[in-house]
């Protein structure tokens, strides 16, 4: 039995006498947020433009928004930006993939095995807290300037937060869930696959999220200090040396877009992977 009252659908379940009501949400509701963001950004750039035109701040440090966009457009048009952007992006994604491939299994192992935790913990924690920049001279000494050194610093930056989160995830699995697994006949392997791994998944994703943030820092310091002559870091460095403020700002905007894009992608993935998490913690 279904009746529709002002957009709400009410279903009477005869068998249970339960009444379930679902309210239809406008299909345009989700575009509302996008609209707000667009207006918000537009206002931001207009204010930027106006403040810059008022020349309160030296235009050498604070260019007009329109000049920044021109530099961005020209940079793509004449091919100064794209090779650097693609170099950074490729390096970063490869680095992140390697970090995940090492960090996730090792982290899970550390969470599951006391011995592995005991042996690896001191190194993992030391590497997690050590400022990445400190490694640059050593890495340059070993690998010289160039790609492998840049890739290494990305991996060293991203892998440990991933590891630590995966480990923490396994350790926070509710004991009663594991006991339920034992009671209902699950083997050790089945408990890992059906209880511990799904429970840990959100932690894995938030680990990768932190890995992205740290990895981006690693990528930049590798490109800025490693002197490889390519990547967004190099673009920043060169624009700074040439007092090319619009280009400097354009590169920063690119970096912001890149990191926001990656983090948003992960958020989307997180909601897909663990829809129960959001609501149950609310």
């Amino acid at each position: 039995m279904t009746e529709t009252i002002q957009g709400a659908t009410r279903t009477n379940d005869q068998q249970n006498g339960q009444q379930i009501e679902s309210i239809e949400v406008s299909r345009f509701a989700r575009f509302k947020n996008v609209g707000i963001t667009v207006v918000n950004l537009a206002v931001f750039f207009v204010i930027w433009e106006l403040v810059a035109r008022a020349e309160v701040i030296n235009s050498l440090f604070f260019p007009r928004a329109s000049d920044m966009f021109a530099a961005l457009f020209n940079g793509f048009a004449d091919g100064t930006i794209w090779p650097q952007l693609s170099h950074s992006l490729t390096n970063f994604l490869i680095g992140l993939a390697i970090s995940a491939a090492i960090g996730i299994p090792v982290g899970l192992l550390m969470g599951a095995s006391k011995i592995a935790d005991l042996i690896l913990s001191p190194y993992v924690w030391a590497m997690t807290s050590l400022p990445r920049v400190a490694l640059i001279p050593l890495l340059i000494l070993i690998m010289g300037f160039g790609n492998s050194m840049q890739l290494t610093i990305i991996v060293l930056s991203a892998v440990f937060p991933i590891m630590v989160n995966c480990m923490a995830g396994v350790k926070t699995v509710e004991p009663s869930l594991v006991r339920a697994g034992v009671v209902f006949g699950a083997s050790r392997l089945q408990i890992y696959l059906k209880v511990i791994l799904p429970y840990t998944l959100p932690f894995v994703i938030s680990g990768v999220n932190q890995g992205i943030a740290r990895g981006l820092v690693g990528m930049l310091i590798g490109e800025l200090l490693g002197g490889g002559g390519n990547g967004l870091g190099f673009l920043l460095d060169r624009a700074g040396e040439q007092f090319d403020a619009p280009m400097l700002y354009a590169t920063l905007i690119l970096l912001a877009v890149m990191s926001v894009g990656l983090v948003q992608a992960m958020r989307w993935l997180e909601q897909r992977a663990a829809p129960w998490r959001d609501i149950s913690r609310a």
Partner: peptide
């Protein structure tokens, strides 16, 4: 079989 105080259901 066992029934747990905290239900112990798999949330996913």
């Amino acid at each position: 079989a066992m029934v747990f105080q905290d239900y112990a259901l798999l949330p996913w």
